[in-house]
C-alpha cells in the first residue's frame, strides 16, 4: 500500500534536490553581507521548517490514533517523528557549520532561536525511550500519542514565542520586517522548500513501506507458527508493532 508510486516519487524528489543544489550554488546570487556562505541557508532553513512541520503533523496523526484507536495512525506518527528527528539533527549540524563561518562560533547560547530548537530536539529525543519503557503495545501507543500531541502543540507555541522575542544574532526568515529575499534568491528558496518537502514525504513513505513489509512478515510467521521456533519470545521494541489490532493493511 505504502510502496505504491514510491519509485516515481523518489525520482521526482532526487531530480528536485539536484535542481535545487544546482540553482542554489550556480544560479542564486551571492548575499551582499554573507557572500557565498549564505548558500547554506537553502538547505538549513527548509530542513528546519520541515522538522517543525513534521513534529506538528505527527501530533495530528496521534490525535487520529486516539480518536480511532487504529494502530496504523500510531505508526504514521512514529515514523513522522523519526524522520523529523533525522532532519533536526541535520539542521543542527548545518546550522553549526554556518555559525562557525558567520560568527566564528559553533554554537551561541544566548540566541533564543538556536536554544529553543535544541530544546524541541531534546524533547523529541525522549520519545523513543518513552516508548521503549512501556511493554504493553496498546498502552505504549496510547502514551506515545499523548506525548506526540503535547509536544506537537509545544512546537508552534515555541516558534511564536521565539518570533516575539527580540532578535539577537540569528537572522529572521519569511518575515516582512527583515530578511525578505530578493528575486532569484526567493525562487531558489521556495524551490529548496519544495524539494525538502518532497524528500520528507518520500522518506516517510519509504520507512512506512519498510515497517509495513516487516509487520506482514511477522504476521505471516505467526500464522505459520514459526515465531517461537526462529525468533524466540516477542522482543520489547520502541517501534509500533501494528499487529496488536490484527491489521496491517
Amino acid at each position: 500500500m505504502y510502496g505504491k508510486g514510491l519509485r516515481p516519487l523518489s525520482l521526482i524528489t532526487a531530480a528536485s534536490v539536484a535542481l535545487t543544489l544546482v540553482a542554489a550554488l550556480f544560479w542564486a546570487p551571492n548575499d551582499a553581507y554573507l557572500g557565498f556562505l549564505q548558500k547554506i541557508f537553502y538547505v538549513h532553513v527548509p530542513l528546519a521548517i520541515l522538522t517543525l512541520c513534521g513534529f506538528v503533523a505527527a501530533g495530528l496523526m496521534a490525535i487520529a490514533h486516539l480518536r480511532t484507536r487504529d494502530p496504523r495512525w500510531d505508526m504514521r506518527s512514529y515514523v513522522a517523528i523519526h524522520i523529523s528527528l533525522i532532519f533536526g539533527v541535520t539542521v543542527l549540524i548545518t546550522g553549526s557549520i554556518w555559525a562557525r563561518g558567520a560568527w566564528g562560533h559553533w554554537w551561541v547560547w544566548n540566541d533564543p532561536t538556536l536554544v529553543s530548537f535544541l530544546l524541541v530536539m531534546l524533547l523529541y529525543a525522549t520519545y523513543q525511550p518513552l516508548r521503549f519503557a512501556i511493554e504493553d503495545p496498546e498502552r505504549q501507543a496510547r502514551y506515545a500519542s499523548v506525548f506526540a500531541i503535547t509536544a506537537g502543540a509545544f512546537v508552534p507555541i515555541n516558534f511564536a514565542i521565539v518570533r516575539l522575542a527580540p532578535a539577537y544574532v540569528h537572522p529572521r526568515t519569511l518575515s516582512n520586517i527583515s530578511g525578505n529575499l530578493p528575486g532569484r534568491m526567493q525562487v531558489v528558496f521556495y524551490l529548496a522548500l519544495f524539494a525538502i518537502t518532497l524528500l520528507w514525504i518520500t522518506l516517510w513513505r519509504f520507512e512506512m513501506t519498510a515497517k509495513h513489509v516487516a509487520a506482514q512478515t511477522r504476521r505471516l510467521r505467526a500464522l505459520l507458527g514459526e515465531e517461537s521456533d526462529e525468533e524466540g519470545p516477542v522482543r520489547r521494541s520502541a517501534a509500533p508493532s501494528l499487529t496488536h489490532a490484527g491489521s496491517v493493511s
Binding site: 557565498f36 556562505l37 548558500k39 547554506i40 538549513h44 533525522i86 557549520i97
Partner: peptide
C-alpha cells in the same frame, strides 16, 4: 562578506553533511 575560498569549505561541509545523513 567571506571570500569564496574561506566560505567554500563551510558550504561544502554543510551540503556534504546533509547528503551523507
Amino acid at each position: 562578506p567571506l571570500p569564496l575560498h574561506t566560505a567554500g569549505p563551510y558550504v561544502a561541509g554543510a551540503y556534504i553533511a546533509f547528503f551523507l545523513i
